[in-house]
Lab assay of single mutants.
Amino acid sequence: FDIYVVTADYLPLGAEQDAITLREGQYVEVLDAAHPLRWLVRTKPTKSSPSRQGWVSPAYLDRRL
């Protein structure tokens, strides 16, 4: 999967189903980028939180090589 970094805090609107909150600087794996406005991502697990999966706007993501 492609690795992206979150460029700004992402707080989903209440109406968005299956969306997750992301923090600036967080790394995520993009699982599904087929839709231009919503990408399915999975967060990297940390010592304090397990990995999470949900939909985010790709405008908040920047690809890492």
Rank of each mutant, 00 (worst) to 15 (best):
A15W: 14
A33F: 09
L37M: 10
L11I: 15
A34D: 10
A15T: 15
D9R: 05
I20R: 02
D32R: 04
P45L: 05
K47W: 10
A59F: 08
L40F: 08
V41T: 01
P36Q: 06
R52P: 02
A33V: 05
W39K: 00
D62E: 15
I3R: 04
V6A: 07
A59N: 10
L13M: 12
P50N: 06
D32K: 04
Y10G: 04
Y27A: 06
Q17Y: 11
E24D: 04
A15P: 12
R64F: 15
W55L: 04
E29T: 08
D18K: 05
G14L: 13
A8Y: 07
P58R: 04
V56G: 01
A59P: 02
Y27R: 07
L65Q: 13
V56R: 00
D18F: 08
Y60M: 04
S48M: 12
W39M: 01
V28L: 03
L11M: 12
L37A: 10
V6R: 00
R23K: 13
P12S: 07
W39P: 00
L65S: 13
R38M: 09
T7W: 05
I3A: 05
D18A: 06
I3V: 12
R52H: 09
D9N: 09
S57A: 06
S51A: 12
W39G: 00
D62Y: 08
V30I: 09
E16D: 13
V30N: 00
T43S: 06
R64E: 13
L40Y: 09
A34S: 15
L40A: 01
P50A: 09
Q53T: 15
Y60C: 06
A15S: 15
L61G: 00
E29F: 12
L37E: 15
P12H: 06
Q17H: 13
W39F: 03
D62R: 14
I3P: 03
D2G: 11
L13V: 12
E16I: 08
A8M: 13
I20H: 03
L40D: 00
Y27C: 11
I3D: 05
L37W: 08
R52Q: 14
V41Q: 00
I3Q: 06
L31Q: 02
Y4R: 03
D62G: 13
Y10T: 05
I20M: 08
G25V: 01
I20Y: 05
R52Y: 12
D62S: 15
Q26V: 06
P50R: 06
V41Y: 01
A19P: 06
Q17M: 12
W55N: 03
S57D: 15
R38F: 09
R23G: 04
S57L: 04
A15R: 10
A19R: 08
R42I: 04
D2C: 14
I3N: 04
A15G: 14
P36K: 08
D62A: 15
G14M: 11
T43C: 06
A15H: 15
T21G: 08
T46L: 06
P12I: 09
R64K: 12
Y4W: 13
Y10M: 04
P12E: 06
A8P: 02
P36Y: 04
L61Q: 00
Q17P: 13
A33Y: 11
Y4A: 07
T7K: 10
A59D: 13
S49W: 09
Q26E: 15
A34E: 10
K44N: 07
W55K: 02
F1W: 11
S49N: 11
V6K: 00
R23C: 13
G14H: 12
L22I: 04
R38H: 07
L37G: 13
R64S: 13
A59M: 12
Q17G: 12
V56S: 01
V30G: 00
G25A: 02
A19K: 07
V56W: 01
L40S: 01
A33S: 14
R52W: 12
R52D: 07
Y4I: 02
V6W: 01
Y60D: 03
D32C: 11
P58E: 02
A15D: 15
V30K: 01
A59Q: 12
Q26A: 06
S51R: 06
V6Y: 01
S48K: 10
Y60Q: 03
Q53Y: 11
G14V: 11
D62W: 06
E16Y: 08
L13T: 14
S49G: 09
H35R: 05
Q26S: 06
A15V: 12
S48F: 12
H35E: 08
V5S: 03
P58K: 03
F1L: 10
L31E: 01
L65R: 11
A8C: 11
V5D: 01
I20P: 04
E29H: 07
S51P: 09
T21L: 11
A34V: 09
R38Y: 09
V5A: 04
L40G: 00
L22R: 00
E16C: 10
H35L: 07
Q26N: 04
P36L: 06
Y27H: 09
A15E: 14
V41W: 01
V41R: 00
R38Q: 06
R23I: 10
S51E: 07
T7Q: 05
V6D: 00
E29Y: 14
G14F: 12
L61C: 01
K47P: 14
S51V: 10
L65T: 13
Y10K: 03
R63E: 08
L40C: 05
S57E: 09
D2I: 10
E24S: 11
Y4G: 01
S49P: 02
L65P: 14
R42T: 03
I3E: 08
I20D: 03
V30W: 01
P36V: 05
L61A: 00
A15Y: 13
D18L: 06
E16Q: 09
R23Q: 10
Y60L: 06
A59L: 14
